[in-house]
Design a protein around this nucleic acid. Structure first.
Length: 860
RNA sequence: GCGAGAGUGGCGGAAUUGGUAGACGCGCCAGAUUUAGGAUCUGGUACCUUUACCGGUGUGGGGGUUCGAGUCCCCCCUCUCGUACCA
């Protein structure tokens, strides 16, 4: 029996594609373009995992399909190669990160080529290449000259373990996202990008994007726009005023005290002598707490009184000023007016410290809670009484503006982007400091390249590793000849990934980050596929840079990524685990009573389903059944190399797509890989039969009607499914074709050829080989995609269900040409024995006929 | 708490605008081939009842709209992801 030797065939075609540059994108601007982009990987030391090929296969299928549909396709790949792991490895071993990075890139490239992706390898970009980061620096200078990059002494998230500052987004639950080390707050000089200047545009332009709704919503929440008012509270004793932001100015009459954040600039001024000690103690305690500790203590509110009073501008009442860490320094103005009657947090605080509570909105009669945050008529509010929230807000804001004590205001949660890191392995800033002031390095001197250093470790004081390269740091200002110091911070990893999609368009262009003529043709990216973990950070930062470049006239579109899709995570194989206590297996509920529980892994054959849970076979002992995230510690990591070695790249591609919808989280199943592998073997045998020789089992006969129908059904389904990215059902359609065709006596060439093309985006290696064996000397990559013909889809008769009172009681076969004749079809239906059984002796109320779908006879 | 999404066989998952629920694959069962195993091929496989037909029940639970609901509406439950004192 002939068998499909995938390893020989796959190597052969991978070599062919590379040598012939089959997928080199021609800059032919006559054709319609399609720019299909993968989120480029960080080339880690551990190589690809099975998650990478998921999104990459999806885009590869579309890229191959679009080429055959006559599109000029841009489908590139590159490396997001700056980053912490290579640097930490350097700290440990002294190996320069460049060496590690190059080695890892090599490995990644090899692995990607082993899967048969149709990238244009002449457009590869590498963020650590000076020819690339020259332009990252160039873009930074654009930000700098527009006042969008500035230095600021500000409290930052300092991670002692990593020896660097982290962006807020890189801190999760008070710990570093990378490594999970503790993070403390500490003031340092930092570079900051003014992303807040673009908050409104970043928010507004989301509406027109074809992105997952959840991702857009996350960005909206992150930007966090809220509309309200700023109100000034006068503090007569100190002749100061405290400005607060509120979304509920209508509740101003209920403001019975004020709270400043411990970091607020007026805290010292406002604290009276008697309160000084207590306030200082509180401030110290708050400052020493990490974000994690602050969050852990959220259950119990705390605060101290400053001793001062402010005047509520609407009623001139004196209200006490407190300090509490439930007010955040970095949101709004860092101070609030507290309205306990209408705010749960304020209520909680007021109860604890016995501060007065005044309701300003009438709660409904059946309301028995504390703070009431719903709508209702205003009370205790003088000229606002009786008005509902919206009207009360308008009226009070008008009043505030007329009296010069407040104004309408919009506030954003989004903060400026902390852009510097105390690391070695990142882009140097194109900045020198002259007389203590930052100054741009002239464009002609770009790139500012990384100097070599001996030690990659940041100093304990937070001085970046670059500070050791004294000869590099000490320079002269080319303009004035004065002594100058280079900036020793480096950019964060996000920098390079903010614009890489532009570099692919003209990777060798020397007069700017991107050739503008080419940019006009290729942008925007038509489809961008990548993980949802980048929903906020990367995707928001890239949009920000893109808008700045748009304002600079570098790019022609407002938004970079027209359509975005996230691939779902691939979990490990389903595991069955039982709980064991003292060597005895017990149910999970039982086990929760003990402490010395060990987990016992079971095989599938040891368990069975009982009701809605799994139990150990023949017992009542419940067993846990779950697919876990792949992780080294759990030992359930699937390595794509192993899968390719055993089943081939086409099987890997096919399986990853066949598992289920692209966006969905799904568990891996090695048995499933075997299934698609069998399908490929069946396909091979369809062409070569069961004999020993590789003689084609292909006929030159005219195809019959059934064969045409089978083919055209497949064309229709596969085409529509690829367009809608339903790859799992497209593969199912290919399987149906093979199952059908296996019952034929030889496959006509005119059927076989279009099928091979349908198969090719999914399993390109076997498809190329079959195409070649069918007598073609060229690759099929640019063969026209087959079109389906409705004529061939029709059959002579159609099977239809007949229902009586909505229940199916018989099936009838209706000749296609009589489908429109309601009377005829219903007559036919009524002749069925089993139908007569149900309608005899009843009165017919209604007869429903949906041509081609159903007959329903309603009787009484 | 809040926001988003999802609950369909033993498992992964299919089901155009409401029109025969379970395509395709895995697993399982039976048979063929084979010295045997593996591989391959053929048939079967939601559940209950039945030798079989027939029949009954079924898309997380409850209610509703409809000739007809996995699909539309209301209430509830569970799970996943995101987020967390944002004034």
């Amino acid at each position: 029996m002939s068998f499909y030797d995938f390893s020989r065939v796959e190597k052969k075609w991978q070599k062919y594609w590379l040598e012939n540059k089959t997928f080199k994108t021609q800059d032919n601007r006559e054709k319609p373009k399609y720019y299909i982009l993968d989120m480029f990987p960080y080339p880690s030391g551990s190589g690809l995992h099975v998650g990478h090929p998921e999104g990459y296969t999806a885009t590869d299928i579309l890229a191959r399909y679009k080429r055959m549909k006559g599109f000029n396709v841009l489908h590139p790949i590159g490396w997001d190669a700056f980053g912490l792991p290579a640097e930490q490895y350097a700290v440990k071993t002294g190996t320069h990160p460049r060496i590690t990075t190059e080695k890892n890139i090599e490995r990644f490239r090899e692995q990607l080529q082993m899967i048969g992706f149709s990238y244009d390898w002449d457009r590869e970009v590498d963020t650590t290449d000076p020819n690339y980061y020259k332009w990252t620096q160039w873009i930074f200078l654009r930000l700098f000259e527009r006042g969008l990059a500035y230095e600021d002494e500000q409290p930052v998230n300092w991670c002692p373990e990593l020896g660097t500052v982290l962006a807020n987004e890189e801190v999760i639950d008070g710990k570093s996202e990378v490594g999970g080390y503790p993070v403390i707050r500490r003031p340092m000089r930092q570079w900051v990008l003014k992303i807040t200047a673009y908050a409104e545009r970043l928010l507004e332009d989301l509406d027109d994007l074809d992105w997952p709704e959840s991702t857009k919503e996350m960005q909206r929440n992150w930007i966090g726009k809220s509309i309200g008012a700023e109100v000034d509270f006068h503090v007569p004793d100190h002749n100061e005023k405290i400005r607060v932001f509120t979304t509920r100015p209508d509740t101003l009459f209920g403001a019975t005290y004020m709270v400043l954040s411990p970091e607020h600039h007026l805290t010292d001024v406002l604290t009276t002598v008697e309160q000084k000690e207590e306030v200082q103690k509180y401030k110290d305690a708050a400052g020493q707490k990490s974000d994690l500790e602050r969050q852990e203590l959220t259950k119990e509110k705390s605060g101290v009184f400053t001793g001062s009073y402010a005047i509520n501008p609407v009623n001139n009442k004196e209200i006490p000023i407190w300090i509490a860490d439930y007010v955040l320094a970095h949101y709004g103005t860092g101070a609030i007016m507290a309205v306990p009657g209408e705010d749960e947090r304020d209520w909680e605080f007021a109860e604890k410290y016995e501060l007065p509570i005044i309701r300003t909105v009438q709660p409904p009669d059946d309301f028995d809670g504390k703070a009431y945050t719903g709508d209702g008529p205003s009370i205790n509010s003088d000229f606002l009484d009786g008005l509902y929230i919206t009207d009360a807000k308008t009226k009070i804001i008008d009043w505030l503006e007329e009296n010069g004590v407040g104004k309408r205001s919009v506030n954003y949660k989004l903060r400026d982007w902390l852009f510097s890191r105390q690391r070695y392995w990142g882009e140097p800033f194109p900045i020198i400091h002259v007389d203590g002031k930052p100054k741009a390095v002239p464009e002609k001197d770009l790139p500012v390249t990384l100097p070599d250093v001996k030690n990659f470790q940041p100093t304990k004081t937070g001085e970046p590793p670059l500070a050791q390269a004294i000869e590099w740091v000490e320079t002269t200002d080319p303009e004035t000849g004065k002594k100058a110091l280079r900036e020793t911070n480096t950019m964060p990893q996000w920098a390079g990934s903010c614009w890489y999609y532009l570099r692919y368009i003209s990777p060798d262009y020397e007069d700017g980050p991107v050739d503008q003529e080419a940019e006009k043709y290729w942008m925007p990216v038509d489809l961008y596929v990548g993980g949802s973990e980048h929903s906020v950070l990367h995707l928001l930062y890239a949009r920000f840079w893109h808008k700045v470049l748009y304002d600079c006239g570098v790019v022609s579109t407002k938004e970079p990524f027209k359509k975005l899709v996230h691939q779902g995570m691939i979990l490990g194989e389903v595991e069955y685990t039982a709980c064991e206590v003292d060597g005895k297996v017990v149910s999970a509920e039982e086990a929760s009573k003990y402490e010395n529980v060990t987990k016992l892994a079971l095989s599938e054959s040891e368990v069975e389903k009982k009701g809605d849970r799994f139990v150990m076979k023949g017992t009542e002992i419940t067993v846990d059944s779950k697919a876990h995230k792949m992780s080294k510690s759990r030992g359930n990591v699937i390595n794509p190399d192993d899968v390719i070695k055993k089943y081939g790249a086409d099987s890997l591609r096919l399986y990853e797509m066949f598992m289920g919808p692209l966006e969905q989280v799904k568990p891996w199943s090695t048995k499933g890989v075997e299934g698609v592998n069998r399908f490929l073997n069946r396909t091979w045998r369809l062409f070569f039969g069961e004999g020993e020789s590789e003689k084609l089992n292909i006929t030159h006969q005219e195809p019959d009607k059934d064969q045409l129908k089978t083919l055209h059904e497949a064309i229709k389904k596969v085409t529509e499914d690829i367009e809608n990215m339903r790859f799992n059902t497209a593969i199912s359609a290919l399987m149906i074709f093979i199952n059908e065709a296996n019952s034929w006596n030889g496959v006509p060439k005119s059927i076989a050829e279009p099928f091979v093309i349908l198969l090719s985006p999914f399993a390109p290696h076997i498809a190329e080989e079959l195409w070649n064996k069918l007598g073609h000397s060229e690759s099929l990559a640019y063969e026209p995609w087959p079109l389906f013909n409705e004529e061939f889809l029709k059959s002579d008769s159609i099977e239809m269900a007949v229902q009586v009172n909505g229940k199916v009681r018989a099936n009838i076969s209706v000749p296609s040409d009589r489908l429109k004749e309601k009377e005829f079809v219903i007559g036919l239906a009524k002749q069925q024995q089993n139908i007569q059984k149900y309608i005899d002796g009843t009165t017919s109320i209604k007869e429903i006929y949906v041509p081609g779908r159903i007959v329903n006879i309603v009787v009484k």
